[in-house]
Amino acid sequence: MRGAGLAVVLLVALVGIFLTWKAVPSLLHNKAPFLTSRVWSPDTNPPRFGIAALLWTTVISSIVAMLLAVPVAVGVALFITQYAPKRLATPVAYVVDLLAAVPSIIFGLWGIAVLGPVLAAPNSGLRQGIENSLGWIPLFSSTGVSAGNVFLASIVLAIMILPIVTALSREVFLQVPRANIEAAQALGATKWETIRMAVLPFGRPGVISASMLGLGRALGETIAVTIILSTPNIGAPFDPSLWAGGETFASKIANAAGEFDTPQKTGAYISAGLVLFVVTFAVNAVARVVISRRKEV
């Protein structure tokens, strides 16, 4: 048991070391500010590359995915554990779990071919509605980009992390002590009040850690995002809109992986991978802190 634990720690450490090892030589040659630049030309001499644009798209798409997925997931988990009769709860739980088994490339293709025209294409009602009513907020401002925008990527990511968050929340809600629930009911609480007073407070740390696991998945999702997202051309001005295209760390690396012909170029992409590694690590660390704080209260 301890051996297995150590092996996992060692594995993570080795991945970190490998990434750093490959990234450092390229970073030393880099002539652009790595964290704040949007330039990406790792094979020129001298190389210039920065990760600002990648970081933005990665983080914004994952956060929007979280915002969409977590409320739905918590609702589904509550429905399964608190409301639904057992006859209904089991199949619903099963179907949600099944979502996790769909390969991400299928999600990508389905997203761009089926969801895209309905939800995210320039002529879709939803997009036009949001652009017209909320377009004054830079996040929703109108762009000319086709269905392959950050918004669509976020929706597909939300669907992909839904089963993870649902399954974990469900487990946590099932753990709520019978005594807490009965105490609330004895006070005359309705079903919803019982949930608010007994189930949700008990389940909160679990839901947070479930969301963070989902976020980790969304941050690193590669192939579905690569298929969906349109890339802006080189030199295009920064556009914070959800209706713009973009590249995440993972999609950038996946797009270029076929043509890693020099160590310099490979190193540039690996250093982007290193940042993703650190971001995911940080997200998990924050989740740990949040959970342990909550537990103490």
Partner: peptide, 24 residues
């Protein structure tokens, strides 16, 4: 160069660009 330097919207692989044109 192997990376595009013109204008436009990028799609992955030949299949991506042809689908993009077909649907736009």
């Amino acid at each position: 160069a192997k990376a595009w330097s013109g204008t436009g919207e990028g799609k992955a692989k030949s299949d991506g660009v042809s689908q993009g044109v077909k649907s736009t």
